[in-house]
């Protein structure tokens, strides 16, 4: 690989300590062996069903996990290992989050003011905001709107504008598409493609494979808190024979545009994970070895896969 990833997550694990009966403490591991790489100018779609650890990954990168979370593994930014202090410095500045909806805005504060709070250059706050509003076709008066007054389209643009007022190199979008109609989805996706084309790295967290395939360069498939495969978007073309993991293949077959066959079974809960490969209880190719050994991530055909028998 000649290109250096701008953001690299290696073997991330997140567990939450909980107190159950009395003072009995239990560590619930919700993310195990999560690996992700982000490159400048590229869109990585992180795809997985609910509970696969997508949002937690975003929070871990930004260092905003709750206090009772314990993390392991490494996160590198520009080749440098991130400490919690680094994360605090980078978030909002170099790494920006685009939340899912305006519910993530302070309901009692005008949007213009909320954007200005995080602009460090105090003298030019007004200019910066009017510039970005102009760029996204938002009227000046929208600055004085409260979040509940924004229409769907405006809200989307405001949230985008918020992420772009800083000189961010990495944009993380958490579920940007649910609840939107086809036309709006396409607009959102185009926005992200444009952002990536300016040289930023975009990580789009979604459970909508089809939306992801439209614009992403790479797709990371999350399952039960682990990365099963990182594939190029092109690998999904045709019958998907270029895909590496049985789960990805099954997902691809489940798409309405393909065979439309649902994948049988459900994702295991964090407290009842299989001992070996996390997908072993649903995998058609499972062997005895899969039940005892957790596969490592290996590189196959310019992609990565976590399966003992992947080809």
């Amino acid at each position: 690989m000649d290109k250096q990833p701008i953001l690299q997550v290696n073997n991330l694990g997140i567990s939450f300590s909980q107190y159950t009966k009395g003072l009995h403490r239990v560590d619930l591991k919700v993310i195990t062996n999560l690996d992700v790489e982000l490159y400048e100018g590229e869109i990585l779609a992180v795809v997985g069903s609910s509970g696969s650890g997508k949002s937690l990954l975003a929070h871990a990168i930004l260092g905003i996990l709750p206090d009772n979370a314990v993390t392991e593994g490494e996160i590198y930014y520009n080749g440098k290992l991130l400490t919690p202090e680094d994360m605090e410095r980078l978030r909002g500045d170099e790494i920006a989050l685009i939340p899912q909806s305006v519910n993530y805005l302070d309901p009692l504060q005008q949007v213009g003011k909320q954007i200005k709070i995080t602009i460090k250059d105090h003298e030019h706050q007004d200019e910066v905001v009017s510039d970005i509003f102009q760029r996204y076709g938002l009227k000046k008066e929208v600055e004085n709107y409260y979040p509940f007054q924004l229409s769907g389209g405006m809200a989307r643009k405001v949230l985008l504008a918020m992420a772009l007022v800083s000189d961010s190199k990495v944009i993380i979008a958490d579920e940007p598409t649910p609840g939107l109609d086809e036309a709006s989805i396409n607009e959102v996706l185009k926005d992200f493609r444009d952002i990536a084309d300016t040289g930023r790295a975009v990580m789009m967290i979604t459970h909508d494979i089809q939306a992801a395939l439209k614009i992403a360069d790479k797709i990371a498939i999350f399952y039960a808190g682990t990365t099963l495969e990182t594939a190029n978007a092109a690998d999904f073309e045709g019958d998907g024979s270029r895909l590496r993991h049985p789960y990805t293949k099954a997902l691809n077959r489940a798409l309405p545009s393909n065979e439309f066959v649902p994948v049988a079974g459900t994702q295991p809960l964090p407290n009842e994970l299989p001992h070996g490969c996390l997908y072993s209880d649903r995998c058609p190719k499972k062997t005895k070895k899969c039940e005892v050994e957790r596969p490592r991530l290996k590189e196959i055909r310019d992609g990565k896969v976590r399966c003992l028998y992947a080809t």
């Binding site: 905003i64 410095r89 920006a96 993530y104 302070d106 009692l108 504060q109 709070i117």
Partner: peptide, 25 residues
């Protein structure tokens, strides 16, 4: 709340969050 989480994600310090969001709400 979600909006405080997002404020954190945008790099607001604890002080700024209390001053800008907590008191009014």
């Amino acid at each position: 709340s979600d909006f405080v989480l997002f404020a954190k994600a945008r790099g607001e310090s604890k002080r700024s969050i209390i001053h800008n969001h907590v008191i009014k709400n």
